[in-house]
């Protein structure tokens, strides 16, 4: 029997095909789509209102003024889009693991992680993306950052970098369900941690600075990557290293997730 090769192109192709089918069926649930979109708008609106209320009372935070903070906010929203769009099935993981349904992902000749994630593409994330881009552009204009191809290229690279950290966090949080039965809180709390990504991580000190940089890397979801754009003359080493660290964190979370799959005894049936 010849060995079939499944490379990157195969996976990209499969993902595209599943996505197309998924979108087709989503279109048929219009009410759900509308309500979810409203929900997503509410979430972003509420975040924005909180932000405005905060700045009404306190004009600067740790030397960051309104527009710089807004930039950070927009940056974090865009960086959080991939986890919302492509990795949303993580939220279903614990239910499928407890009920035993998860086993079906193990019977296909493809990567379990890929197969599981491919099942859900969350369209709602796109609303957040639009909101984030809008905020980012608004802040960008007010700060007066020059628009050059190099800056745009940097922005894209570091946005992708930033998104890897959030994906890693949610993968790790979701994977705890292989060991802990009611891991719902872990995910909820991790998801709330991201709210702190939009503040400059210079507010932390000591051991907690280390914790929020290297263990629960929320400092990388917006702060470090965005410094490359915001403060080009004074970029810390960690900002330059963030793409590498992003890949590392993603890989670690993936390994942890897959370890869970292997360790789990599938007794749900």
């Amino acid at each position: 029997m010849e060995k079939k090769k499944r490379g990157l192109r195969f996976y990209a192709d499969i993902y595209r095909k599943i996505l197309v089918q998924d979108l087709k069926t989503k279109m048929s649930y219009r009410a759900d789509f509308i309500i979810s979109t409203i929900g997503m708008i509410m979430v972003n609106l509420s975040g924005f209102i909180t932000f405005l209320i905060l700045f009404r009372n306190f004009p600067t935070i740790n030397g960051w003024d309104y527009y710089h903070m807004l930039f950070l906010y927009g940056f974090s929203l865009v960086a959080l889009t991939p986890v919302q769009c492509f990795f949303d099935n993580n939220w279903n993981l614990r239910f499928q693991v407890t009920s035993g349904d998860f086993i079906k992902y193990c019977f296909r000749p493809v990567n379990v992680f890929f197969y599981f994630m491919s099942e859900v593409f969350d369209v709602k994330g796109l609303g957040q993306l639009a909101f984030g881009i809008g905020t980012l552009i608004y802040a960008w204009i007010h700060i007066g950052i020059p628009v050059t191809p190099l800056v745009i290229a940097k922005l894209i690279v570091f946005l992708i970098t930033a998104s890897l950290f959030m994906i890693a966090l949610m993968n790790a949080a979701a994977a705890t369900c292989f060991w802990i039965r009611n891991s719902g809180y872990v995910m909820v709390i991790m998801f709330r941690f991201k709210d702190f990504a939009k503040y400059p991580s210079s507010i932390f000190s000591g051991i907690f600075k280390f914790l929020f940089t290297f263990i629960i890397p929320i400092a990388f979801i917006a702060y470090y990557p965005s410094l490359v754009i915001l403060d080009p003359s004074n970029v810390p080493l960690l900002s330059w290293l963030s793409p590498l660290l992003g890949v590392l964190f993603f890989w670690l979370s993936y390994t942890f997730w897959m370890l869970g799959v292997r360790k789990y005894d599938f007794t749900g049936s």
Binding site: K4, K17, K104, F107, V110
Partner: peptide, 29 residues
């Protein structure tokens, strides 16, 4: 992965197909 190429599995009560897709689309996938 290699083993999965050569086996098929059916669990009576849980479907392994894409829940919302027509059968033919599941087959194509």
């Amino acid at each position: 992965t290699e083993n999965c190429e050569n086996i098929g599995v059916v669990f009576g009560q849980r479907s392994q197909l894409w829940w919302s897709l027509p059968l033919i689309e599941s087959f194509k996938l």
